[in-house]
Nucleic acid binder design. Structure first.
Length: 296
DNA sequence: AGGGATCACAACCCGCCTTC
DNA sequence: GAAGGCGGGTTGTGATCCCT
């Protein structure tokens, strides 16, 4: 295939259709009309000799060829975007861009209220999108220019290709409902293990940080409720006898009474992660510094 | 009804040729 | 070599058709 005969803008259209699963939606984000996207797709189809997308109900599903193409295309476009951005100064007052962050809802609750007021004050035309990305996809999305920063629990040796900086440290505490009889005494290990626990995890199964720590101590707690979102903690804990082991900052934020754990709390460190690529982007580095300052 | 494909038309781009 | 005119090709738009 002769590259000079291909309009490389077709790859931008390809990426938009793949991302949004719709020609109409792609036309909206590219600020061109639906026929223009349809026409561009027709040209790319001729170049590739493949349908690339087929209609399935109201969605455009990628063919196997399109699925094979999307990774390299995203990577190439990410590098082009980066090369065009390199060396450009970031002026928050006039800048207009969207920052994409990956973090769990618990981290959002702790970090975003602290840093977003300053982001909107300094950079009124910038937008922040926060959503959780699977750990295994973070590096790929950062390389493709689809993710700027990620905040996650520090794990030794994780993702050696990512750069990181400690964001905040905390300790775990045991949260119970107001008036819980446990609040009138000191919580010992027997009392802790006798409790029914609420465990929050985005995964369907597997041990949590605390469970792994207890395992090392040779004991096991009783998890009777497992849920995905920390939003559930406040309403559930306040109406039941359940206990939850949470970071102290979050316990304070929820306004629930809490007790120190009857064993040395494992260290909880949240790290801020970014890619080599983002390290060259003055805008991302500006946001990184702002987040670090806001949670100090 | 929503959304992709197609058509006719207009605007723009680019290569080629001519003139200076 | 630079500038201008011409013609063909490409791409975007609105309108409309047709499929799911």
């Amino acid at each position: 295939m002769q590259l000079h005969r291909i309009d490389l803008n077709l790859l931008v259209v390809f990426e938009a259709i793949y991302t949004h699963g719709s020609i109409t939606r792609a036309s909206q984000v590219l600020f061109i009309t639906q026929p223009a996207v349809s026409n561009a797709l027709a040209r790319l189809r001729r170049h590739c000799g493949d349908e690339l997308f087929y209609r399935s109900g109201r969605h455009m599903q990628p063919t196997a060829r399109a699925q094979a193409m999307i990774g390299p295309v995203r990577q190439a476009l990410g590098m082009i975007r980066q090369s065009l951005q390199d060396g450009m100064e970031f002026v928050p007052e006039t800048a207009s861009r969207t920052f994409r962050l990956s973090m769990a809802d618990i981290v959002e609750a702790i970090v975003l209220p602290r840093c977003l007021p300053e982001v909107t004050r300094q950079a009124p035309d910038c937008r922040v999108h926060s959503y959780p990305v699977e750990r295994s996809n973070i590096l790929q999305q950062m390389d493709a220019g689809q993710l700027d920063l990620a905040i996650d629990v520090a794990q030794p040796g994780r993702e050696p290709l990512l750069l990181h900086q400690p964001l905040l440290q905390d300790r775990y505490v045991c949260v119970v409902r107001p008036g819980h009889p446990l609040l009138e005494q000191e919580l010992d290990m027997d009392g802790y293990l006798a409790l029914q626990h609420l465990h929050i995890s985005s995964r369907r199964q597997g041990s949590g940080h605390i469970d792994l720590h207890l395992e090392q101590l040779g004991v096991q707690r009783q998890v009777s409720v497992r849920a995905r979102h920390y939003l559930l903690v406040q309403p559930l804990i306040s109406k039941t006898e359940l206990a939850a082991t949470l970071p102290e900052r979050l316990a304070r934020q929820l306004g629930l009474p809490y007790l120190p754990l009857p064993f040395p709390s494992p260290a909880l460190t949240l790290n801020l992660y970014w890619s080599q690529r983002a390290g060259q982007d003055p805008a991302v580095m500006w946001l990184k510094e702002l987040i670090l300052q806001s949670v100090e």
